[in-house]
Simulated assay, not measured.
Amino acid sequence: MQLHTFDSSAALNQQFAAEISSRLAAAIAEKGEATLVVSGGKTPLPLFKTLSETDLDWSRVTITLADDRWLPETHADSNEGLVKANLLQGKAASARFISLFDSAYPDDAYKGAAVVAARVAELPVFDVLILGMGEDGHTASLFPCSKEIQAGLAADAPVALAVTPATAPYQRLSLSKTRLLNSAVIYLHLVGPKKLTVLEQAMAGQDPLQMPVRAFLQQQQVPVHVMFTAN
């Protein structure tokens, strides 16, 4: 794990967007296509805006989410809606998006999970994966408080699974640890001093069931870069 610290969110977002676009461009040059996996929430919104203004052959980029709430994109709390409104705009409007929601089962992520898993299973190795981290040490929707946490972290986990957190609203659809680790590089995007404290706690312990982000920070399979700014 490498920690990269920035003086401001603006500086982080400029450097981060440049690094992401460079990696995606290299993948397009090598394979003819690239895959970007992002996370939702408020933290990445300025990054999304910066990325959307970046020169890149976005028509060759596929974007999906590491997780989402089981909600239609029109819902205010949908990460899909957030990504479409903030990232798939401007120069990035031509990117292809893979949804983690299935409208055939609008009220039951557990019934829809297999449909979503089949979609994600068709994707190649993720060229860039961006994760966030909660103050409880969760990442994606791999929550330590959920009944599904062992299944989500298992080596033989499905590509994607439904999750019901005990401490957060809505059913979720999360990619599993195994599928998320099928990436060329992982970035952990953190803003605020509290997140640095949580990161230190995660690095100090061993049990990923207590803090699932440890499953990514403490593995040797995929390089992890933590992009951090206090403000």
Rank of each mutant, 00 (worst) to 15 (best):
Q2A: 13
H4K: 12
H4Y: 10
D7M: 11
S9H: 11
S9L: 15
S9V: 15
S9T: 14
L12M: 15
Q14D: 13
Q15L: 09
F16W: 12
A17R: 06
A17I: 09
E19L: 10
E19D: 14
E19S: 12
I20S: 01
I20D: 01
S21V: 12
S22I: 07
A26Q: 15
A27Q: 08
A27C: 13
A29C: 13
K31I: 13
G32I: 12
V37R: 08
G40P: 04
G40W: 04
L47I: 03
F48K: 00
F48G: 01
T54C: 15
D55A: 15
D57W: 10
W58Y: 11
S59I: 11
R60L: 13
R60I: 09
R60P: 06
I63P: 01
I63C: 10
L65A: 08
L65M: 11
R69M: 00
W70R: 00
P72Q: 04
H75M: 04
D77S: 01
D77H: 01
N79Q: 03
L82W: 01
V83T: 08
K84V: 07
N86C: 08
N86Q: 11
L88P: 03
Q89M: 06
G90K: 05
K91Y: 08
K91M: 11
K91P: 00
A92R: 03
A93G: 07
A95F: 10
R96E: 14
F97R: 11
I98N: 04
L100D: 02
D102P: 05
S103N: 14
P106V: 00
Y110T: 04
G112Q: 02
A113V: 00
A113N: 04
A114R: 06
V115F: 00
A118F: 09
L123P: 02
P124T: 09
F126K: 02
D127V: 04
V128H: 01
V128T: 05
V128C: 02
I130C: 08
I130W: 02
G134Y: 10
E135W: 12
S141D: 06
S141W: 01
S141V: 03
P144K: 00
P144H: 02
C145F: 12
Q150H: 14
D156R: 03
V159G: 00
A160E: 07
L161F: 13
A162W: 03
T164E: 12
A168M: 03
P169T: 06
R172Y: 00
L175S: 04
N182Q: 15
A184D: 11
V185G: 08
L188P: 04
H189V: 10
H189Q: 13
L190P: 00
V191C: 09
G192D: 05
L196P: 01
T197L: 10
L199T: 06
A204Y: 09
Q206S: 15
Q206F: 14
L209R: 15
P212E: 09
V213K: 12
F216I: 09
Q220H: 12
V224M: 04
F228D: 04
A230C: 08
